[in-house]
Design a protein around this nucleic acid. Structure first.
Lengths: 233, 233
DNA sequence: ATTGCTTTGTACAAGTCAGTTAATTTGCTA
DNA sequence: TAGCAAATTAACTGACTTGTACAAAGCAAT
């Protein structure tokens, strides 16, 4: 399907370094996501590219170098997707709701990213440590939450001690686990929670939990009732 | 430290099939947890046992067979630990609180189990599927929650539609993620949430979230305030 | 005492896999 | 258009790894 870039068409071929690199990265991401760092095979990656094994070593030095770049690329792609979310025009509670829902769906739509991060954790974050890029990419990941929390506090809605990093942890935990552990969880307990309805329920609960964690106790709405139904005592 | 079983003491040696098997399993669990299925080396496992490579094949046929038994053993150990928790004598909210806290701590204390499950998920649950044992082991894992939910509903405290499986999912998600993604999360955002204080906070929030999800809205306490402070409207 | 199960040990076959060598083609620049 | 660097290919190498063959012997139960 995608054989536009970096072709060697029998006789005449065009140089396309960027395309070749990109092609290798894309194939390598699939292979590493599917089989892990030691499970992936360089020959297999090479066979699935439009180029040859030698080019992998030409551009990425060795297997670990390739894996490191794949890791960076995975973070880049996912964070880029997240950047498209515009929240500043929404009130704090709605912004937090949308962010949580978006994260849940976004992770769900990018299982290969989840698998790469799982694999990196299996390797105890050794390759992530070596990348300055990933630090930069993720520095921006939490700014959205900081802005929401600031606005929520200023509006008197959120608790004074609400911690953006903790909110991020909770949102990530449930959104990540939902994809990462699907195989074992549904293998053991069945797939009921992974039907469209089940997913909708889980997502709604995630939102409810996170919003209630951010809100001051007396501001907590009660599942559909308007805020303020329960009077401040 | 543990060289009681399966010794070949120079001349006279005792037969100890169970001990040899157990010793191999224990070493293999460490190696698979540390390096994954394809990353682990049979020769390395053999070197760390009190016995020889030949015995690994004698008892476990091949590498995948060994891995499968390690997976079962990991579940067996962790579920056995969980069974020791006695909740029937506690009121529903306290029981749920204790179960959530226990799970959080239990996962935290068994990182090798977490890693094995991560690895199994990387392999899309292929080996878990082949084991009847694991299904049996986990059937009991959710019974505690079912009992708690039943008692909570009967006492008029819990929502009528409270779902034990969902509660289990939420408890598992946060308890699991807390261990599985520690490397990348702290690599990116620092280790603040993984200090003793940070962990205590996360655990407290997990409990609060899960309890509030189970309780009827009008029964929800507000972080330390006695239940009923907010009148039913 | 016989028979089957368990254990030790070494050596090695067969295949896999990361990484390299050497030679060729393309494109840029002067 | 000559020359040089970048890009590309196919075959090769050497190390590693799983799993087995073979040889021998101790233990346990009937």
């Amino acid at each position: 399907m995608d054989d536009r870039p970096a072709g060697n068409r029998g006789s005449g071929w065009k140089q396309d370094p960027a395309g070749v690199r990109k092609n290798i990265l894309a194939v390598a991401m699939e292979e590493f996501a599917a089989n892990g760092l030691s499970g992936a095979r360089i020959d297999e990656i090479a066979a699935k590219t439009n180029t040859s094994k030698r080019m992998i070593y030409y551009y990425f030095d060795d297997k670990e170098g390739l894996y490191g770049r794949v890791l960076e690329e995975a973070y880049r792609q996912v964070r880029a997707g997240e950047q498209q979310l515009e929240l500043d025009h929404l009130p704090p509670v709605e912004a937090l709701t949308l962010l949580a829902e978006f994260t849940f769906e976004h992770h769900s739509r990018h299982p290969d990213f989840i698998r790469i991060v799982m694999i990196e954790n299996i390797h105890r974050g050794a390759y992530l440590e070596q990348s300055e890029l990933i630090g930069l990419l993720n520095a921006g990941a939490i700014q959205k939450l900081e802005a929401i929390c600031r606005r929520g506090r200023e509006a008197g809605l959120f608790r004074d001690d609400v911690a953006p990093l903790e909110l991020h942890w909770h949102i990530s935990a449930m959104s990540f686990f939902n994809v990462s552990n699907r195989a074992t969880f549904s293998g053991i307990f069945g797939g009921a929670l992974f039907t469209p309805e089940g997913q909708q329920t889980l997502r709604a609960h995630l939102v409810e939990m996170v919003v209630n964690l951010a809100l001051k106790p007396d501001r907590r709405s009660r599942r559909g009732e308007p805020t303020g139904t329960c009077p401040v005592h």
